[in-house]
Design a protein around this nucleic acid. Structure first.
Lengths: 341, 341
DNA sequence: TTGTACGCGTTATCAA
DNA sequence: TTGATAACGCGTACAA
């Protein structure tokens, strides 16, 4: 680990000169010494000590990606293809901009914020934040923050959010089911907050626009914890006969359900139609292939990271960025219009 | 961002004392001042500046996780459930030990090493390293390294590797197919290096032990690039009639193939048996559910991280750590023994 | 064009 | 038990 000081000594010049060359301030240096230093640098394979650099400049060149895991879903979180795709997009963007990414997974907001301030992280990308977090975070942390898929009202006052028009996507696919002649349509999710709530609302709105009434029994709650999931699926499969279609809040749940139905000899789409939301690998590779709402998760990660980078560069960015969705029609929806007669 | 210096000033004492309290060196401090400092610390919510600390101690408390992506697979890499599960295991272990994780994805070894030495990373976990990398890395980097799933001969001289007995796993499942009456068994992969080679060898060995000869035509090469995959799958599906079973090098490929076969009306397991390797979500949720070799990827991540942590603590660790595999028999293999007559 | 000297926040050494 | 002070490596204002 050679230092600037050492280089300067060996070259018989000052650290300033060496430093200037390193930073490309060639105007300040004579051609002669410039070349001498550059050659030497290449030879010894100089690598700056980031700690010293950061300390001197009070920067860190680190962008934190904090995934706030819901305690009850932790194990599933990182296995969800959604998360890995997101990480991929963020990492790539950050790296290309010369920043570094620190990944942090936790269910404790306080712990996340402590971590972030210790490292003097230049900016923060938050995923999975809830309402109360927004308040706490905005008090402590004065640097740029970009949220992903957050519906926190408090948060949105202070941070940019990158998300989808979840309501619209959900509306569209529910509407598609209705157009295909479905009337008894359920909605499946494990909670009614944030993104899930928005998607539920879109679904409800589509029903309402078609003069179909929503009852509480139309909402099917899945319990994703490992100990409960099988029991939960069993219950759900029994309810299936009451409906002709189920709108699942995610591809993961849709495909999980698809498998459970297949195990019980319930045919998709003949006995029941299933749709998802996300359009990930799971639904793509399943057979019958899943009809779903497409979102580009990698782009979400890229957008979040590049928005943050813009803010770091002093640019203004909109408070809300909504990425588009579109329907992907595959094979899990039955056309009831002809079958009806 | 309050500093030790500032605290010392406000409390009318020296930075040394404050620092001592922070580090729990209570023996060095009188009860009186101890309490005074502790109270003050709690009040002002002191967070240490890691850069300064690292600079002073020449440590970083960072563990780097470098995923070396093969250029031709980059897009798939991060979407592969394998990778996200691995990250999850590593991150959790590192965080619980009070370290931080820096994630780095790149196909350029030099770039990775530069990054790692800039940050003075205390230890490194490498995934996806090839032979020549091993040499280069071991020259530059003198701190602990743990590799995951590496078969680099050079690397193994210098680093601990955490992996599987891939040969054995592959042998077992091939052997299972043979026991079920299969003789015409193909092996599908996209390369013949490292893990893939080991699995290929296990497969060959099982064939050989059963006096079944291996010909070059038994090796089916899949081309996973997005532009080629469909064409590649088409070709593969045509070859399928020459075999009764296909051993796929991963669940991802197995399920991809499963979907392609289903699209062409080729029945699994009636027309052809398919097995995978990994036992991830993809195979679990597919129907028919995939028969495969199980490995616990999260444990792999945890093991890699905790082995590195041990090395950091000065403990000796074995050079090779092989995690167990076991067969998971599900529904993609046909029993040919009765059908044969 | 080059060099000196100081500050960044922390820890460590040694003296008081 | 406490406090000066040096050191870590780098950047930079200012002086030469």
């Amino acid at each position: 680990m050679i230092t600037i000081k050492e280089i300067a000594k060996q070259l018989n010049m000052s650290t300033t000169t060496v430093s200037n060359v390193i930073h490309g301030k060639t105007g300040e240096v004579s051609d002669d010494t410039l070349k001498k230093v550059q050659d030497f640098l290449a030879k010894v394979d100089y690598v700056p000590n980031i700690n010293a650099r950061n300390l001197a400049q009070n920067k860190s060149k680190i962008i934190g990606l904090a995934l706030k895991a819901r305690a009850d879903k932790y194990d599933n979180l990182i296995m969800d293809p959604f998360v890995s795709e997101l990480i991929g997009g963020v990492e790539e963007t950050i790296r290309n901009a010369g920043y570094f990414m620190m990944l942090y997974i936790s269910s404790d907001t306080v712990e996340i914020m402590r971590h972030v301030s210790t490292w003097n992280v230049d900016g923060l990308i938050l995923f999975g934040m809830l309402d109360d977090d927004g308040i706490r975070v905005s008090e402590k942390y004065k640097k740029p923050i970009v949220c992903i898929d957050t519906y926190s009202i408090e948060g949105l006052k202070h941070f940019t959010n990158v998300g989808l028009n979840d309501e619209q996507g959900s509306y569209d696919i529910t509407n598609y089911l209705i157009k295909m002649g479905h009337k008894k349509i359920a909605f499946l999710s494990d909670n009614t907050n944030g993104v899930d709530l928005a998607r539920l609302n879109g679904y409800k709105m589509a029903l309402s626009d078609a003069k179909i009434s929503f009852r509480q029994s139309n909402f099917i709650k899945i319990r994703p914890r490992e100990e409960e999931i099988q029991e939960s699926l069993r219950e759900i499969c029994e309810k299936v006969k009451d409906f002709t279609a189920i709108v699942c809040v995610s591809d993961l749940y849709a495909v999980t359900l698809l498998a459970a139905l297949a195990d019980r000899g319930i045919n998709v789409p003949d006995d029941i139609s299933i749709v998802g939301f996300d359009d990930n690998m799971l639904g793509k590779l399943h057979r019958p292939a899943l009809t779903t709402v497409h979102q580009d998760i990698k782009t979400k990660g890229i957008t979040a990271a590049s928005t943050l980078l813009k803010q770091l560069a002093g640019e203004k960015t909109p408070n809300q960025i909504q990425l588009p969705t579109h329907l992907v029609l595959r094979d899990t929806v039955k056309d009831l219009r002809s079958a009806a007669k």
